[in-house]
């Protein structure tokens, strides 16, 4: 009985201390990790979408709360004088969530560009969604009112062959971004101007 108590106490104590230490390290590094992700994951995506902006979208961003969610919206000034916004949405892919950064030109109300940020899809198949231009270029120029879906689901996007689930997930993320853009249009307009 005595030994049983001792085992329980030691294990519980160790687990509690470990949990406390981890929580402290986690909250201590959270800001730096977010900054690193901005630099190495979201940064390249933003730069590829907003290559032609006159400002640095990574520095011009603001937080927008949607319900309970906090979203970072990146703002780019276009050479034409208009403004573009970009934010990240997620779709459910084959190997987990796929993050897609969606850039929208607020002047023409069309998609400026999209870029996959995080994914864990099969290399050579679903992973093509990140770099295959013939797939990613299909989204550019679509109006924000468009229904984004793969052709199998009655949409206009040709899926990557062998990776329909991934293509669907990307479409799902982009469709959600467009929906959210329309919902928040007034808010965005106010903040940007």
């Amino acid at each position: 009985m005595n030994e049983l108590v001792r085992m329980t106490v030691v294990l519980t104590g160790l687990a509690t201390i470990a949990g406390g230490v981890l929580a402290a390290v986690h909250s201590g590094t959270a800001d730096r990790i977010a900054a690193q992700q901005l630099e190495y994951v979201k940064g390249p995506a933003i730069r590829s979408i907003m290559a032609a902006t006159t400002n640095n979208p990574l520095e011009d961003s603001f937080q927008l709360s949607i319900g309970e969610e906090e979203k970072t919206v990146f703002i780019g000034s276009l050479a034409s004088g208009g403004t573009a916004v970009a934010f990240e949405e997620f779709g459910r892919g084959f190997g987990g969530d796929i993050g897609v950064m969606v850039g929208i030109n607020m002047e023409t109300e069309t998609i400026l560009g999209t870029a996959v940020t995080v994914h864990s899809e099969t290399p050579g198949l679903g992973a093509k969604a990140k770099n295959d231009r013939s797939f990613t270029s299909q989204f550019e120029g679509l109006p924000v009112s468009a229904t984004v879906a793969v052709t199998q689901d009655g949409g206009q996007i040709d899926a990557i062959s062998g990776a329909t689930t991934t293509s669907r997930a990307v479409c799902e993320a982009i469709a959600q971004a467009l929906e959210r853009y329309q919902m928040l249009h007034a808010d965005l307009q106010k903040t940007v101007n």
């Binding site: 590094t29 990790i33 690193q36 190495y40």
Partner: peptide, 11 residues
Amino acid sequence: VVELLMQAYTY
């Protein structure tokens, strides 16, 4: 701890 530190400093 190592994983978090690596994320923070050597991403």
